[in-house]
Design a protein around this nucleic acid. Structure first.
Lengths: 211, 211, 211, 211
DNA sequence: TATGAATGAGATTTCATTCAT
DNA sequence: TATGAATGAAATCTCATTCAT
């Protein structure tokens, strides 16, 4: 039996969840998870405190649900890209994409990162859902190019984390206003420099001559 | 006039502060800053709750004081080292030293890192006191070797953050048991791989021939 | 648009505020402001501790709100009275009214008076809201009768405070069981004696002959 | 056996008590009894916290002891005065004396008065030791003059409290900066007005002619 | 289902008092 | 006797969660 009201209902529930989640994200970003109160979240989401508990078991579930939300947005862009043949060009595309994501959604990820350091379960969750999909994609890309002889025989797992750590720290520096010298580096210049460094790190010098 | 009791008293005060700080560090590491209660901290430190407030103005000061404690321990080893002539050897020494620090004092830094994402003032504090001293040292080292022609003309500020980001993420992976594949990589192998990657990234290929 | 629920809600809020305020008054009267705990106040008001803070920002606001409550009750009776022509009769009415107020609401004013000696802001508040309305009324009354020649040309500001000080101290003596001799003076006798004293103080002897 | 050291010791003990008491008075006056901490009192008195407890059982004893101190200073001047024959002159002397006392030692009496409203035992203590000696003296003075026919046959107990209440409230107004109009009344003018009011209240009009 | 007032456990912090030196 | 560090009970206030409407 086909019951269209079920779908409609599900849609409405999903819509409410997202509405609450976005309210929570806003407040988490401003105050951090612990200092955000459910009252503030309710206000930001435009619902009452009680309603939050109709859609989420407790405050922590809001944080966990935000991971899924982020994962969705984080992967959408990166995975579907058809990699260009030139690795530097590809890395530049990825850097641009991640920089944009950091700029637009950085506030969403900050409270999650903060809690990761304390909460082992959350750590697992974030690693599985947010980090691994991207990391795995990069690992495979590196491995492929090692096999083809274009990249040096580096450890792709480690090299991927070098890549991730480098961009996380550098983009954080650029966006957090902690070091005045980053103000003099344009986003494009930063991306170009990082891409160059990675290329020098990865490209097989023997093959480079062929080019 | 020489008054030895002043020194003695100061020593005792310092000792008590450290005792309380270590208790706080223990509980912060286990539960995170926000979920750590002053009652637990007092227990862990072996003092009463009231005593904490004879040495620190409030709970947050415990976190701030931990930064100083860490900064002291963090810098002691790295700065006083007389860099060997071979850059790879030098970087390996640094990596080994940081790995040991991460292993031994990682638990101290986790709650601080967590709060950094929420607390802008703490962010500044950590950057000034913990990050910059090490980063500045590396920046100067890189600059010197660029000037001598041994390193490529990279941006030393960015390259330093690549370095820091890479080791933070890789050491975190190794120590946090998040990815099973890191169990198969020995600390030495990890350090060797990272050193190699950095060398490839930094060494001037033209000068490399001279060697 | 007419929305009767707004009024209803406001009424309920007002009712709860009063309920809590009366609980606080009870405990303040018994123990004084500082020794009264929010736990006791909550019990006396029949609500939980948390509920107090849904209606008042902090403990001190309870004290401040009590001033308004008192001011309302204190003024209601005195101002609306149409003064009789005979001053002694009028003063007797006022004394009776104040005596009754002291008897019935004295416990409300004691903790406020106590805090006045410490808290400059409260002092201002009480003077503006409690003392001045009554004092101003008396001052004007005295001035009018000076102008008409019935009262001597006394300073009405000072005379009013003589009046107020006299009845505060005498009624306090009568009600506080501090001096056994006041037990032998009936309220009516006390009021009559005070009225006589004030009349002797204020009446113009030259006009008195006319009578 | 005569032992001069006992006296010396007692003197030193008395001196220390007074030293501590004056420190307490200072802090009580600034912050009120409840907000004054023993640490502050110790500092103000120039002793350690522990030492306070060698001379007083607890914080409250400091307040009780201050009553004795005040009683001593309060009575010294008033009782030993040989009353002049003219009542107005006498009352003026008393008013001047009390005004000076209020100015100089008002800060000592404020915290005591504050606690009186809460603490029944203190109320008794203050009434017996501070109020009654002065009140009794006035009562006897009034009674004597009633007997001699110079004063009306007023109730001396009540009239005395009228007197006390009047000067307490008026002097408080003058000294507390609560009412701007008191700034325009000089102390002498205030005393003169009060003396006149009391004379009108008390003097027997029949005898007044004799004068 | 939505509301938001009520709850009360629990957190931080203060401070009078004690007591070993 | 003087000290002042240590104590820990107790106080105020917050806030996630519940539940009657």
């Amino acid at each position: 039996m086909f019951d269209p009201t079920v779908d409609l209902k599900e849609q409405m529930v999903e819509h409410r969840r997202t509405q609450i989640l976005l309210g929570a994200a806003k407040v988490f970003a401003e105050k951090g998870y612990h200092k955000a109160t459910t009252k503030e979240i309710a206000q930001a989401a435009g619902v009452s405190e009680g309603t939050i508990y109709n859609y989420f078991d407790n405050k922590r579930e809001l944080l966990l649900a935000m991971i899924e939300l982020l994962a969705l947005q984080s992967l959408k862009s990166i995975i579907n890209t058809q990699p260009p043949a030139d690795p530097k060009e590809f890395i530049t595309i990825i850097l641009r994409d991640r920089y944009q994501l950091a700029q637009e959604r950085g506030y969403l990820i900050m409270p999650i990162l903060a809690e990761m350091f304390t909460d082992a379960e959350l750590r697992q969750e974030v690693y599985q859902k947010l980090a691994m999909p991207v990391a795995g994609f990069l690992e495979r890309y590196i491995q492929t190019h090692i096999d083809s002889g274009m990249f040096r025989p580096v450890n792709p797992v480690i090299a991927t984390r070098v890549f991730i750590g480098s961009i996380v720290v550098n983009f954080a520096m650029k966006l957090a206003n902690l070091d005045a010298r980053y103000e003099d580096i344009s986003p494009d210049a930063l991306i170009e420099e990082l891409a160059s460094l990675f290329m020098d790190m990865l490209l097989n010098p023997e093959r480079a001559n062929e080019k």
